[in-house]
């Protein structure tokens, strides 16, 4: 290492150091609550999801039809006000079979793994994907390039959320 640097700080602790009470800990739990306004563009996106539609925006300059819809085009940097319905079907761009929950706890035996995917939505510009989940498919059968279609929650159960689409299933 450096001619002068011979010693490295940092003291590794083991589980035993902690469980035996050798190390003092202080604990706290933060309970943060938020209510997010959905914004101009996403508000309409969610309202349409509640009706069973996927709506996108089109930029008059670059002509891209983008999802999720937005109030401005981040490439051309101009306002966008042209709304277009797209299909509720698409193609799997990539996917994962996830055995870990968001807090790093493990999916238990017998429980289904999470099946996240990037789905390029039909009718939007090429490559325009959204993150969502896959369902009604054996994990081993999922392939990149597979065609999928949205499975919607019954109308009465929809709340104006991305989860109004339960998941996408292969067609």
């Amino acid at each position: 290492m450096s001619e002068v640097v011979k010693v490295f700080g940092g003291t590794a602790l083991s589980e035993k150091d902690i469980s035996s009470g050798k190390i003092f800990l202080t604990k706290d739990s933060l309970d943060c609550a938020y209510a997010w306004d959905t914004g101009v563009a996403i508000n309409r996106y969610l309202a349409e999801l509640k009706k069973g539609n996927i709506i996108a925006t089109r930029c008059r300059k670059c002509k891209r039809i983008v999802l999720p819809p937005r109030l401005f085009c981040e490439l051309c940097f101009i306002p966008v006000n042209d709304w277009v319905y797209v299909h509720d079907s698409g193609v799997i761009n990539t996917f994962s079979i996830c055995h870990v929950h968001w807090d790093a706890s493990r999916v238990k035996a017998g429980e289904d793994p999470h099946l996240p995917a990037v789905i390029e939505i039909d009718g939007a510009s090429p490559g325009m994907g959204i993150m969502h989940l896959l369902g009604e498919v054996k994990p081993a059968k999922i392939k990149i390039g597979m065609k999928v279609k949205a499975v919607w929650r019954p109308e009465a159960e929809r709340t104006g959320s991305i989860t109004d689409i339960k998941y996408f299933k292969p067609i």
């Binding site: 997010w36 994962s96 870990v100 996240p116 993150m131 991305i162």
Partner: peptide, 11 residues
């Protein structure tokens, strides 16, 4: 709004 409802994780 558009992603966190799906309970994603970093992996």
């Amino acid at each position: 709004i558009t992603e966190r409802a799906l309970e994603p994780n970093l992996l």
